[in-house]
Design a protein around this nucleic acid. Structure first.
Lengths: 252, 252
DNA sequence: ACGATACATGCAGAAACGTGCAAGAACAGG
DNA sequence: CCTGTTCTTGCACGTTTCTGCATGTATCGT
């Protein structure tokens, strides 16, 4: 085992299990505790872990940050994301919209899943850098700062040149008459262009969006295969959607 | 066994097994450890592997690595970035390459600067979200994970539709004969396409890159307006470049 | 307070490293 | 075909780095 490899192992252990016990690691790897201690000392000197008696813990700000982001992503969105991620078949092509829920989907994808992800969100592209087997195709265009996605003519045109098996769309409003809606016209057009390029379109809708409507219509219900939500499936709005032929996938 | 063949073998081994132990490879192939070490040194210089004591590891095992590079921008890169940022005139259009030095430039741009930034790096696009008056245009395409930039035919084509006053280019090698070089052919082509769309091209070259060359040529010196570096301007390589008519901007 | 455990430090052997050098192969030019 | 040059390769040497052990000290749990 290489020394550097051992260090990586320690960092991996740290992020997976949240702690390192020097004695256990030494026994596991068949090396002396001294070496483990030395490594931990070095890592601590680089600010990559926090040294404590008996082993090490994740460095506080990073973990707080990471943990916070994980928990700040509300349970609802995480559950929706998990169900959505399960829809992605190995080898298939996925169009992934921007937004926090879609970002949660990117994080929820199995790290070793081999698939193609097409997105107009640079944030999601960056999030998928650590999915080595995921092919990422980024749709270019003018960056719309508010939502951190590309929009406009160039982006819409780029979307015309791709197609996919599945499109996962985030929206701000889910309403039985208004359909799917969002707050910006350009963004609505872009979402429409994306949905048109996929065989199936599923909508990511955490519970607070059910029954609300924003200014700009994205799609009518006929163009949507299903809706993924953590809201109660017996919610009156959802029952009306089901009557429109929309498949309701309950998360959580 | 050919030298190039041996190098391929090493890279294959690296991606298959995630590590290289110099001693083992030398024994397997029946060559001296010295040769293996020499190869690994060369590969590391081109950014194709990470040299460690006893062998080598893949260059980008984790995003943690990327995150680390991002948070601890060395002084040299920051100085180079500051000089580069000062070249950007209000209202002008800038093509900004990917890479850590270019990212430092994005951070070094005045927060209220009104300008157009064209980039093929989603990371840089995200970094510019908090520059309200900067118009960002993202060039789409296949995401090249190692450098976190878009590459390939689609990206090159998108580049044909834009033009700018200034292009700031990052490279991995700056050599008087080899010119500007980088470790990946696709990336080299993309950098070439970007440089061709700007009136002036300046190269961002922190001192450790001076005098080194990677496998793939980006540009000859004739196509470069200037070079921004924190190295000593009396460095012999830089004096030779100045003789070629390249303007040397000293940072720091 | 006391034993047990973890720790830092110094040390020595082993392993890996860089460099200079020379022998040999590949190549260009005459 | 010969010759000079360049590049590669393996070896030798001195240097650096790693690793486990021993020692004495600090910290923890009881």
């Amino acid at each position: 085992m290489l020394a550097a490899e051992r260090r990586d192992h320690l960092l991996g252990l740290l992020s997976r299990e949240g702690k390192i016990v020097a004695k256990d690691v030494a026994a596991d790897l068949g090396i002396s505790e001294d070496s483990v201690r030395r490594d931990l000392r070095d890592l601590a000197a680089e600010g990559l872990c926090q040294r404590v008696y008996g082993g090490a813990l994740p460095v506080s700000p990073a973990v707080a940050d990471y943990g916070a982001r994980q928990t700040v992503t509300p349970d609802g969105k995480r559950q929706v994301a998990a169900v959505a991620a399960a829809l992605v078949r190995p080898g298939s092509a996925l169009i992934l919209d921007g937004g926090t829920t879609a970002l949660a989907v990117a994080h929820a994808l199995p790290p070793d899943l081999a698939c193609t992800v097409i997105t107009h969100s640079p944030t999601i592209a960056v999030a998928l850098l650590d999915h080595p087997r995921a092919e990422v195709f980024l749709l270019g265009g003018r960056l719309f700062k508010h939502s951190a996605v590309t929009c406009g003519a160039a982006a819409a045109e780029a979307a015309q040149n791709i197609s996919a098996d599945l499109c996962l769309l985030g929206v701000t409003g889910v309403h039985p008459e208004a359909g799917l809606t969002t707050g910006d016209a350009e963004e609505a057009a872009m979402k429409r262009a994306l949905a048109a390029r996929a065989a199936d379109t599923y909508v990511l809708a955490s519970s607070e969006k059910i029954g609300t409507a924003s200014r700009f219509r994205v799609l009518p219900w006929e163009d949507v295969s299903g809706l993924i939500t953590d809201a109660d499936p017996r919610h009156p709005v959802l029952e009306r959607l089901a009557a429109h032929g929309v498949e309701i996938l309950a998360a959580g």
